[in-house]
Design a protein around this nucleic acid. Structure first.
Lengths: 183, 183, 183, 183
DNA sequence: AATGAATGAGTGTTCATTCAT
DNA sequence: GATGAATGAACACTCATTCAT
């Protein structure tokens, strides 16, 4: 799957599934249909895992720390819990336009979660007002998404990566000064 | 080019060059050869532009601010100066291993520049010691590299993107100004 | 079935029979076996219906009028009584040679009936002696067989088609009533 | 081509053309495109040959005899001048509906010639008024078209077939009695 | 320096057929 | 008696590549 949309051969999929290529047509009506479902499931998975992590986060966390929780969940999804989700996220930009359009809503839904986290942090005065919120979000997600391209266990522990990414993101976004007033 | 290694057809290249596909063989001995050169040139270009920006940076800049200069140069290379460089950087991870190996040195050379910038900043005590330097670097480069996947002029001015990314990165890396770490 | 030998898929047959395709193998050992039986039954049916019509024809009919009876029976078989027979007749020429050979006898048997009718009419002096009997027969059968390609109820009543075809054939074959041939 | 629409393999065509199958795509964009052009050319050929024969027919021929000329031209086209035309005519009814629709006009144009011949003969009182003109036309064309299914040189000379078919058709259609009043 | 024409290797897809249940 | 699941052979089609011009 790391070969991208065009590079993923149906026979590769079949090999992994340990069946012959035509058997796939018993379950999917075409290669595109298969990829589409894989991406849809991957996106849904990523979203579900992040939402779950947020739901299980301890009460009383600052908005920015909740964003840190999402960062950890997204990264750990991408890097371990599911190749599936990682492949989906990285594949989306390569999809042919008509196919990508069909996932736009799922993409938006996922990004919406992040937008909400940033908006909350902003409302709480925890975010540097010198940053463009929309751009910041994409930069942060980019940092996370690209990680699947370079990280492998030999490059340090997963926890180390998560900790560094989290800290980098949270402190990069944080408002100056004494921090937000505790309300 | 945004279709990745496998999705880029020789005839696409030919179309852009406004020649017929076989004409390419007058200049390159194979598709892989063409891609290889394109990637090599792209990587060299990215490196040259960043080095040039650093050379032209005003004296007396702090190490971290120099890193900010590199961020701006890398981003503007990626997003405007050269599709070429952008494509190269994003394509590298998709290349077949034997081909990627041939670029490993160029990749390392480029990353080495960044490593130097971070080491300088660290030596100057400007970088948060709670961060893993290697991981931070990859996270930062990821944030920048992924930008080509989502940015288009309709998403805000290039300058705005650069400013936000720069600020986010620099402040994310910066050592606390003596303020106590938040718990 | 109007898609011909090659165009008829086993799953089409299964759909009509309202079973799944593999169920067919309980009754036939292969697709070719199925087609072979279908053609055989169809040819037998056509023959039986024509023979029956002739047997039930009123006594004292002229030989040529008996041929007209056969025309009506063949046409009505083809167009309504049995898609089966129609399909069989039209499919025969498309069959692979080895398979067709196995039906040659049935084809001959059927044609033999017509040959007999023509011979009788000829013996009775009712047929234009300027016609080649063998060719005439094939031309007449062709006229009838092709009808399944164009006729549908919206093109006029079945009775109208039969009446016109019958008249055309009988008068086309009929010996002149002593009138001089037109020059 | 006698295997029909579904039974015609691209590799068969390639074999005849003495090229490899993919070479066909240099000239046609798909198998259907190839078949479509073949059918279009075949229909145009049939029409052209019949029109030419009519144009070259001696002056002063009765309307019915002109129809006989068309019969001869159609048959000789089908059986010798052009496998192409024969294949086209016999293939049309097997085409998928959307493709057939694209030829409907050409079919109509061709049939229109025949319709005109019959209308002329009818206006001249040369045609049996007991016949339905539309049905007669289809019956006659069917007789001719089917001939390609059974005729081969071993079944008698081409001229013999044409003569018999012509006589059968013309006398079948002809009005009774002393023939039309010569005006 | 470039192209028209063609090819061979491969890829997605269809379909008859098998087999365990 | 029938089906769900799977397979292998064939087919249409794509694409990098070659070669004569």
């Amino acid at each position: 799957m790391h070969r991208g949309y065009a590079g993923t051969r149906l026979s590769d999929v079949a090999d992994i599934a340990e069946v012959q290529a035509p058997a796939i047509y018993y379950y999917f009506s075409s290669r595109d249909d298969l990829i589409e479902e894989a991406v849809a499931v991957g996106l849904a998975r990523a979203r579900a895992l992040v939402e779950e992590a947020l739901a299980q986060a301890p009460e009383g966390l600052s908005a920015l720390d909740r964003l840190g929780v999402a960062v950890a969940a997204h990264l750990s999804t991408l890097l371990t819990h599911s190749d599936h989700a990682a492949a989906a996220i990285r594949t989306v930009p390569q999809l042919p336009e008509t196919m990508r359009a069909r996932h736009r809503q799922a993409e938006r839904d996922y990004i919406q979660i992040w937008r909400g986290l940033i908006a909350d942090a902003r409302a709480a005065g925890e975010i540097d007002t010198g940053l463009d919120a929309g751009v910041s979000l994409m930069v942060v997600l980019g940092a996370l998404n690209w990680s699947a391209e370079w990280w492998d266990p030999s490059r340090g522990s997963l926890e180390g990566v998560i900790a560094t990414a989290q800290r980098l993101v949270v402190r990069g976004l944080r408002a100056d000064g004494g921090g937000p007033p505790r309300t």
